[in-house]
Design a protein around this nucleic acid. Structure first.
Lengths: 178, 178
DNA sequence: CGGCCTCCTCTACAGATGTAGAGGACTCTA
DNA sequence: TAGAGTCCTCTACATCTGTAGAGGAGGCCG
């Protein structure tokens, strides 16, 4: 499917050069398609952005790993997976920032772990599941951001390694504690 | 100082339109200066970016509020302050993302709370202050990001209100616990 | 086989953008 | 008051960007 070639190339570009690099012609080049292709599929830039964000959403079907026997481990694994998929996650951050001044993106972006987090908090016996769930989500987001683009991107362990998993698990355990 | 007029306008633009809106001429307009002014002070776009990021760093001298009697409250207040300074914080996120493919920005961006956080963790008697400090920083970052651009930006309490402070404080308390 | 439709490529063009430099206004010093 | 230096404004221009439409290749239906 040509459309997917295009949106995938768009994701790579946004991850590597930021939103500013996202132009019709740059996507053509990145996808190895003749000039004009991207413009044919996504006539306006706005359409192009929505296109790649939708593609992101599709690719992110991979949801939180919920392992009943090793809850923290499963979640750590999920986060580590997002760190390994660096491009995708970077593109997602760029899109979230974009959604700030382009609200229709928000509805595509809703990363559903929110309700999962609330349910989790309830199951663990937190007194106020909504709050706890929100805090938990915030913490996960933070861990991810910190390790991907924040201070932890230079000092933290390399994603995909045992050490990375251990580190993440430890952090998650602390927050799961009721 | 004309240079500050320019960098301040640049910060507003980046916050409101993203990095893509940051052009010499757009900054001229936003600052109410004649066309060409920005270009005279920052000949290249790279220089303009570095200029506004340095300005950000200057404006952010306001460091973490450390209140010995109400540690969590002080930190909550700090975070809430960042949420209220929406533009500045949004511009900071855009800059952090930019630093991903423009590494020389990182040295300007280092938000110093990292060592403070480590020291804090040590003072609170965490077994491994470096890890605890990093996790704590991650959590703060996450809370901020979640409330500013993530899910909490639509559902959370309005920054600057009592409720916002209470909510943040509760979250911070949980993570401060050794 | 002829016509139609879809998918794709190519070209056009107005406007925006990055960057450079000429020259004017203003200020300070001697 | 003359000259030098600084700060600012204006204009120029090659290049890039968003967007549109013309037209070709190939498949499908009658």
């Amino acid at each position: 499917m040509r459309k997917d070639l295009i949106t995938d190339a768009a994701i790579r570009i946004v991850a590597e050069q930021g939103m500013r690099g996202l132009t019709h012609r740059a996507v053509d080049r990145e996808a190895g398609l003749p000039e004009g292709s991207t413009s044919a599929y996504f006539r306006t830039r706005k359409a192009l952005i929505e296109g790649f964000v939708e593609r992101l959403a599709v690719q992110e079907q991979q949801e939180i790993v919920l392992d009943q026997d090793d809850l923290a481990g499963g979640i750590a694994k999920t986060i580590d997976g997002w760190l390994v998929e660096r491009n995708r996650t970077l593109a997602r951050y760029a899109a979230m920032l974009e959604a700030t001044h382009h609200p229709e993106l928000k509805s595509i972006l809703v990363h559903s772990p929110r309700e999962q987090a609330t349910a989790l908090a309830r199951a663990l016996g937190h007194e106020s599941p909504e709050h706890a769930g929100a805090h938990f989500t915030a913490f996960i987001e933070g861990l991810l951001f910190y390790r991907l683009v924040g201070g932890g991107s230079t000092t933290g362990p390399r994603p995909g390694t045992e050490e990375s998993l251990r580190d993440l698990k430890k952090a998650v355990e602390k927050v799961l504690r009721p």
